[in-house]
């Protein structure tokens, strides 16, 4: 893994409640780099996150909101966070429901910059 990306993912993973984070190709949902708990299915997270991001991007355009910069899906048993990054990548984080989203967001934005 590229050291900068590895460090960026490592910083995200230090946030309490984070189960894993990864760089994903936005177009096809393929994992580019990851740091995950063993129980997390990285390929599934990547594919689904990329698909969801595409859907939201289209819907946001329809509402006149413009390009999506950060996406958060909260569910009863977990939270999925997605931040678009340069080079058609996404930074994706899977976390517990009560994770500090603000802190995750900051680290994910740094991770997005690291991909430039």
């Amino acid at each position: 893994m590229i050291p900068d990306l590895e460090q960026a993912l490592d910083r995200i993973s230090r946030v309490r409640g984070v189960r894993g984070s990864m760089y994903v190709a936005a177009d096809d949902g393929i994992v580019v780099a990851h740091l995950l708990m063993e129980t997390v299915n990285g390929k599934a997270v990547a594919a689904l996150a990329a698909s969801l991001a595409r859907k939201v991007e289209g819907a946001a355009a329809a509402t006149g909101a413009g390009r999506v910069r950060f996406l958060q899906m909260d569910a009863a048993d977990g939270t999925l966070l997605i931040a678009p990054a340069p080079r058609d990548l996404l930074v994706v984080t899977l976390a517990d429901p009560r994770v500090n989203v603000g802190l995750c967001r900051l680290e994910m934005m740094r991770a997005a910059e690291a991909a430039a």
Partner: peptide
Amino acid sequence: EAGRTAQYLALGAWTTIVAEADRANL
């Protein structure tokens, strides 16, 4: 899509989606 994602990843029912975009938050 959110329902499918939550189901596959065993996240339970999704409750909210927040999208921060260039001109508005949704």
